[in-house]
Amino acid sequence: MSLFNVFQVSASAMSAQSMRLNAVASNMANADSVVSADGRPYRAKQVVFEATPMGGAGELSKGVRVTQVVESAAPARMVYDPKNPAADEKGYVAFSNVNVVEEMTNMISASRAYQTNVEVMNTAKSLLLRTLQIGQQG
């Protein structure tokens, strides 16, 4: 793998993690939602990644791309609140299926992955600059 492929791989990972962070932000913002745009409780969004080849033929390096954003299949969170106007006939209100603890963990993981790829790019840049400096001295 050439040093230039490092930039492609890291950039693809940063883009994917950015989409993951956006999904987490949307989930967190709607954690206590009762109704979404379609009239049902908000459903948590999950980002699906896929490895994708980078570089030319014969290269073994792989990046990452987002293949889709899917809704969580977890059931809605039911809360007993008979005074709520959104309550059903039994007095339960269906809230979003967002698990705040899982989303915070997702946010930390995505943020660290993004930061790690920034560091990889910075290190590759430093190596290239150092290589150019060595070439100028000789």
Rank of each mutant, 00 (worst) to 15 (best):
N22V: 02
N22D: 12
N22M: 09
N22H: 03
A23Q: 03
A23I: 08
A23F: 03
V24R: 04
S26L: 06
S26C: 03
N27S: 05
M28Q: 04
M28Y: 02
M28H: 01
A29G: 14
A29D: 07
N30T: 01
D32H: 09
D32M: 07
S33M: 11
V34S: 08
V35L: 14
S36F: 08
A37V: 11
D38W: 05
G39K: 05
R40Q: 14
R43L: 11
K45N: 11
V48G: 11
F49A: 12
F49G: 13
E50A: 15
T52K: 06
P53D: 13
G55R: 08
G55A: 13
G55Q: 09
G56I: 00
A57V: 09
G58L: 12
G58N: 02
G58P: 08
E59T: 04
L60Q: 12
L60S: 13
S61V: 02
G63S: 08
R65D: 00
V66E: 00
T67R: 12
T67V: 15
Q68Y: 00
Q68A: 15
Q68V: 00
V69E: 11
V70N: 13
V70Q: 12
V70A: 12
S72T: 07
A74S: 14
P75W: 00
A76C: 05
R77E: 13
R77V: 08
V79A: 10
Y80H: 06
Y80L: 13
D81T: 03
N84M: 06
N84A: 13
P85G: 09
P85F: 02
P85K: 03
A86F: 10
A86C: 05
A86P: 14
D88M: 07
E89N: 06
K90L: 12
K90F: 12
K90A: 15
G91S: 08
Y92E: 09
Y92W: 11
V93D: 05
V93F: 04
A94I: 04
F95N: 06
F95A: 08
F95C: 07
V98W: 03
V98M: 09
E102G: 08
E102F: 02
M104G: 11
M104Q: 06
N106P: 14
N106T: 01
N106V: 00
M107D: 01
I108W: 03
I108C: 10
Y114P: 01
Y114L: 01
Q115K: 05
N117C: 09
V118F: 00
V120C: 00
T123G: 12
K125P: 15
L128H: 06
L128E: 02
L129K: 10
R130F: 07
T131Y: 03
L132F: 07
L132A: 10
Q133W: 01
I134D: 07
G135L: 15
Q136G: 06
Q137W: 00
Q137N: 09
